[in-house]
Design a binder for these strands. Sequence first.
DNA 1: CCGCAAGATGTGGTCGGTCATGTCTCAAGC
DNA 2: GCTTGAGACATGACCGACCACATCTTGCGG
Lengths: 342, 342
Amino acid sequence: MGAIPRRRLPVMADVAREAGVSHQTVSRVLNDHPNVRADTRARVEAAITRLGYRRNLTARALVTRRSRTLGVISFDTTLYGPASTIYGIEQAARTAGYFVSIVSLKSIDADSVRDAIAYLTDQGVDGIVVVAPQHSASQALESLPIGTPAVAVEATHRADIPVVRIDQAEGAGMATRHLLDLGHETVWHVSGPAGWLETEGRLRGWREALEEAGRPVPEPLTGDWSPRAGYEAGRRLAATAGVTAVFAANDQMALGVLRALSEEGVKVPGRISVVGFDDIPESAFFSPPLTTVRQDFDVVGRHCIEMLLRQLDAGPGPYERLVVPPGFVVRSSTAPPAAAAG
Amino acid sequence: MGAIPRRRLPVMADVAREAGVSHQTVSRVLNDHPNVRADTRARVEAAITRLGYRRNLTARALVTRRSRTLGVISFDTTLYGPASTIYGIEQAARTAGYFVSIVSLKSIDADSVRDAIAYLTDQGVDGIVVVAPQHSASQALESLPIGTPAVAVEATHRADIPVVRIDQAEGAGMATRHLLDLGHETVWHVSGPAGWLETEGRLRGWREALEEAGRPVPEPLTGDWSPRAGYEAGRRLAATAGVTAVFAANDQMALGVLRALSEEGVKVPGRISVVGFDDIPESAFFSPPLTTVRQDFDVVGRHCIEMLLRQLDAGPGPYERLVVPPGFVVRSSTAPPAAAAG
DNA sequence: CCGCAAGATGTGGTCGGTCATGTCTCAAGC
DNA sequence: GCTTGAGACATGACCGACCACATCTTGCGG
């Protein structure tokens, strides 16, 4: 009643009987041990296909204490960045023969991350990738039992957990310098929300680029990554005198800025130049096509798995910190400032 | 050597010893069986927290033959639609106490889907959700062992697998009728790639709406969901005489169309009205903000899990086919045709 | 032709839970 | 007062793999 009626699947003992050997020999064939005679191996393999046998990974996991499953913790997987990172992680993991169990967090508090970690370790994952670039998440990594193989994307307070991150400050620097090089006096910034490491990295890169060039640093406008936030920032920028260049902390907010400027009749890049961050697939088709910083999320995902697997079969290694350089894509949303600008 | 050095975690026997009871009593407390005296229960619980015991889900899965893990197969999880659906699935599953193991397919062929199914069943998932709205994927479901609890998003050829889908034809009909109601003589269509069920549903809804109104049905332009494809279609539409209304099969392609029209100096919605499909977060901030069909991916995800869990604890029920109605969002990319239009 | 090592295979224990069943206690029912 | 039965707990088998070790073959040198 209620149970699934599928008849019992064949187990190793069935294969052994069918092939006229012991279950141990079947196991040896499965794990291709060298010490099995060729004809015995063939007989076992024949029995396996005849019975349609598949080994029970649960039983295997119980005794080997390896589940061949990796846990991934992420925040808002509907955003392009996290989704792409996870995609990269999943592909790399599967190629390496690992399963991926994903937890998407709704809220960013440390409790949620702690719960997610507990949830995944209960399930018996061999290692964990945490993609949650907020301070709170980074702090919550403290609760990860020492010795648990893990990799963090962006950052962590833990000295024993390797990190893969994109050089946010460098990306922001590229964006800012690009605008300064075009001749703009300074660059305004629409930042991400507080508490995000990416927000801080981009703020820092932007600020330092301005300071290095000896330019005034305007008060940044704070957004929340959404196009709406960019839109509101855009309206305020349009109403602010002297603004000729804007660096938005992501492409979605840049889109909102473009929209607001367009509504206000401000020409881009004629009167104001705009740069984004992420290079989402849409940004090449914005009006105008967006100049932006490119992040290679795929590479990040692959490196995560690589570092995690290395920990798994070599034990905890030296603390690694891999920094992936960003790229820069020049399109049509940036130009020298209009000579006649007021 | 190489093994993780974390010392042995406490097991049920340890708890039993600590609490002075048998392991069976510990098990009873864990599964809150009624027949345990209150003070015994308290003693066991105290021992559990004192030792920091967590039950080993692998061992549990081995004997119960339930892993409390659901498998999800999807294609291109970096797209907004699949990503959102998976997000909904993951949330609903976790709420129900299930883990989610995800496989993102690179290519859509039947072999990949077959492999993914084998991969997941090997892992011992309790059920599978297949989000792969292509004919080939739908066909590959044939290879799913009969009796395996499963749910398909969009469609399947199998009569024993329930389906959750969004009413694509209805959405396309809404878009088309909206444009006709505004006074357009007919509506052009930029479709998705061949082989996708969504492409076909949207084509059908568009065509039927036109035929019902007795309007001419122009040759549809075929895209691949990308903004670039929309852009190319947009250029051709701009060069075609008599085009006043375009229905793009998704928002990204609509963005490309808008971009192309803008480059050609064609006013939207002044000379050509444009409607999209999906309602991605960006579309409200396109230039102009896009009128589009809204899909509630969250709802789809939740229903999937609900139906899957029902199968799990009630056995295969009657074949279900849940159709989620689309919504329609009117923004600024549509207007009546210009009276003076040639 | 024997001995011995390496190769091929079998036996039983183990992982950490759950399930079926057994034993014991104690109060209700006749 | 003894049966009856249910509650409270313990015991041992079992899920299906892997692992250590035992045992049986085989091949080859002496």
